[in-house]
Each structure stands twice: as structure tokens, then as C-alpha cells.
Design a protein around this nucleic acid. Structure first.
Lengths: 132, 132
DNA sequence: ATGAACCTTCCAGCAACGGGAAGGTCAAGC
DNA sequence: GCTTGACCTTCCCGTTGCTGGAAGGTTCAT
């Protein structure tokens, strides 16, 4: 199957598939005489795996590790679990950080009358360092 | 004051200050005969403003708008409030998205025994498209 | 006068692709 | 057989927001 088909089947844009091949995240597929890439079901499974892992927020480097573990017969499930929990912790940090930002912005927005007059507590806050 | 002093006073790295000047986010400061940049209190105020807005998650382009509004005598507070609320909405989206990811990863992690055996439900989930 | 600690410019690169150019290929329809 | 249009190929540049480093100039204290 051509790259376009593989793209539909995996959910990744063709450009992204080529990119992943480029950086060695996925192995290069077979080629036809014409030079076209020719993907089989195994290739597509791999691509789907990567697409899901990326969709879950794993970085490309983490995907590399996950793929290695996936293909390693002697892998320990603990390694995978650890990677997953590290990612969860990062996500928790990010969420907390965003909630802090949200609170600050909300405070600024609530204090602003929002009318046509030029006095704006948001800009005052930004200018003078109002906290929380 | 030199760029290093301005960096300490504003909380931005010197590299970043030069970068902001480069992209025209902040005006170029005076120069000494030696070629060194020479920052005054107004310059530093501007830099602090930008530092805070960036810290609150405004993009550089949004900072440009905020700075323009800040320096515009005829600005409407409503414009600033609108920008702020748009940013809050974006943050809310991002938080919701991350919470979804977290839930999926947590589900996978909980179903994994985490031991040394190679059977790993996380990899199974990634491979076969388990949802939530 | 020499050394450390600044400063200057420019160049390169990070993640993770996306856009678009210039050209080759395939399948269908006439 | 020939055209047309959809696909494919490689290549290189642009994105966002910086950060690091190289090569060289300045300032200041010793």
C-alpha cells in the first residue's frame, strides 16, 4: 500500500510518516520499482502504535523507548509502567501550572470593568507585578 | 545599565532580551560609545511587563498587542479583557485535554502489574487501540 | 598589563512537524 | 496512445521561543 493509504490506516499524515522514517523512529518500508514506499500490515501496526502513543502525549523519544520495549521479548512490564507513570507525573505538573495561570488571569479579568474607558486593572497588574 | 543588569532587574535572560529586540517586541535601547546596550528604567519597566505577560502564558504576539494597548492612551479596557478571556479559554481547553490524557494513561498504568514478566497491558493497549 | 567578567554579532539547533517547489508515476477515460 | 489529475518522490524553508556556542571587543580590578 502507498503512503497515502498507510496514512489513512494509521491516522498519521503522510508527511509525518516520512518524518518518522527520517529520524529513525520507524524502519523504512519496502520500495516499489517506481520508488514509491510500499507499506504492509506490520508497518501499519507500528505506525498506529506510534500514533496512539503520541496522542497520549509521549514524546518522540519516549515512543522510541516504548517501541523498543514493545518489540523486546524479554522486556519487563515494570519498565513500561515506569515510563507511563513518569508521563502522568509530568502531566500533573503541567495541569497544576496551568491552573495557577488560569487563577491569575481570572483574577485580573474579574477586576476589569471591560468597558470603553482606558483604565484597565489588567494592564496595571501586568505593569506593577500584582500577584494571584 | 548594561544588559546583564537589565536581565536581573527584569527577570529575563540577556539572550531573551536581545531576541525580543531582534523581533521588534521591545524597542532597541540606547547604546554607549563602546556599542554596549544601555537600559533605562522605562526600558526595564517594559521588559518586566513582557516578562510577566509571558509568564502568564501570553504568546509573544499577544504581548505585542498588550504592549500596544498599554501604550495606547485611547485603548479600551474591553480589548484587554477580551484578550485575557481568550487566553483563559485556551488554558481551559488545554487543561481538559491533559486531564483526558491523564485518565487514559492512568487506566493503562492501573491495569499493569508492573512486575518483571513481559506481559504488559499498556503495550497491548497501545497496540490494539484500547480506549479510556 | 593581564585576567576575569562582561559585552557584541552571527550561526546553529531544539521539538515535531507543515508548506510548497520541482519533478516522476499511475490509473482512468477518450 | 495520450492526456489529465491524483498521487508519489526529494529537498529545503518556516514555524515558536528561545538557548548554546564561537570569535572577538570592552571594562575594571589588581
Amino acid at each position: 500500500m502507498n503512503i497515502g493509504q498507510a496514512a489513512k490506516a494509521s491516522g498519521l499524515p503522510a508527511k509525518t510518516i516520512r518524518y518518522y522514517e527520517d529520524i529513525g523512529l520507524v524502519p523504512p518500508p519496502a520500495r516499489r520499482d517506481s520508488g514509491f514506499r510500499d507499506y504492509g500490515t506490520r508497518d501499519v501496526h507500528l505506525l498506529r502504535f506510534v500514533a496512539r502513543a503520541r496522542g497520549l502525549g509521549f514524546t518522540v523519544e519516549e515512543c522510541r523507548q516504548l517501541l523498543a520495549l514493545w518489540q523486546d521479548q524479554d522486556r519487563a512490564a515494570g519498565d513500561v509502567k515506569r515510563l507511563t507513570q513518569e508521563r502522568i507525573a509530568l502531566i500533573d505538573d503541567k495541569i497544576a501550572q496551568l491552573q495557577g495561570l488560569r487563577a491569575s488571569l481570572d483574577h485580573l479579568a474579574r477586576s476589569c470593568h471591560g468597558g470603553n474607558r482606558p483604565d484597565c486593572p489588567i494592564l496595571e497588574g501586568l505593569a506593577h507585578g500584582e500577584k494571584s
